[in-house]
């Protein structure tokens, strides 16, 4: 299948593991035979700030940077960042998948601004005809694996055209080994208790 262009905007907070999920998707797209480009945030923002990664799949892509409002899919690992990403990056009629956890930003912790609620995100999605998949896996004890729970939903709901389970697994095998691979693979394929969708 020749894809013209499919843009994925990933967002989270420094420390959540955006880099890993982004690299898995990038490599999975490559294994699926798509031309693909990507770019990550490094440096200062990684310290508890906003971390963004962009992936662009398709024949007609040159820059790794997605124009504002032209992402087809937003993958977020935190609720505030999900909202920020759909406001700034996601196209009307696009898709949002996010891990429904909250890492309160500074102004919320200082009590000067209100925390974003799940309803606020849904409301914004409704207004822009965005399909929304809030993800939760209550039995997950290691927060560093929330990214893989999100990846499982991306696979389960076929949110990226042409990328199949096998491509994700091959990509994971490129990047991990031993216990880490086994643990992540298990979680990726174990859809028990995984909730996705409103």
């Amino acid at each position: 299948m020749v894809l013209s262009q499919f843009n994925i905007y990933l967002a989270g907070v420094g420390g959540q593991g955006i880099g890993l999920i982004s690299e898995i998707i990038l490599r999975a797209a490559d294994h699926a035979g798509h031309p693909v480009k990507g770019v990550d945030t490094h440096g200062l923002a990684q310290r508890g700030g906003i971390v963004v990664s962009q992936i662009r799949i398709g024949q007609d892509v040159h820059s790794p940077l997605i124009p504002a409002g032209r992402a087809d899919l937003v993958v977020a690992l935190e609720r505030h960042e999900a909202l920020r990403a759909i406001v700034g990056a996601l196209k009307t009629g696009g898709t949002l998948v996010y891990y429904n956890t909250v890492w309160q930003p500074l102004p919320v912790r200082l009590g000067s601004e209100k925390q974003v609620s799940k309803e606020t995100v849904s409301d914004a999605c409704n207004r822009r005809q965005i399909k929304e998949y809030p993800v939760l896996k209550p039995d997950l004890t290691d927060p560093h694996m929330q990214n893989i729970a999100v990846l499982a939903v991306i696979d389960q709901e076929s949110l990226i055209p042409g990328i199949k389970t096998g491509h994700f697994i091959t990509a994971m095998e490129d990047l991990m080994a031993g216990d880490m691979l086994a643990g992540n693979r298990r979680l990726f394929q174990d859809r028990k208790g995984l909730t996705a969708g409103p």
Partner: peptide, 20 residues
């Protein structure tokens, strides 16, 4: 003219970088 993501004026609290 460039078309952005379309208007939604939902405020999102800033997230400056933080000490770990």
């Amino acid at each position: 003219p460039r078309t952005g993501p379309g208007p939604i004026d939902v405020p999102v609290p800033d997230r400056p970088a933080q000490l770990c």
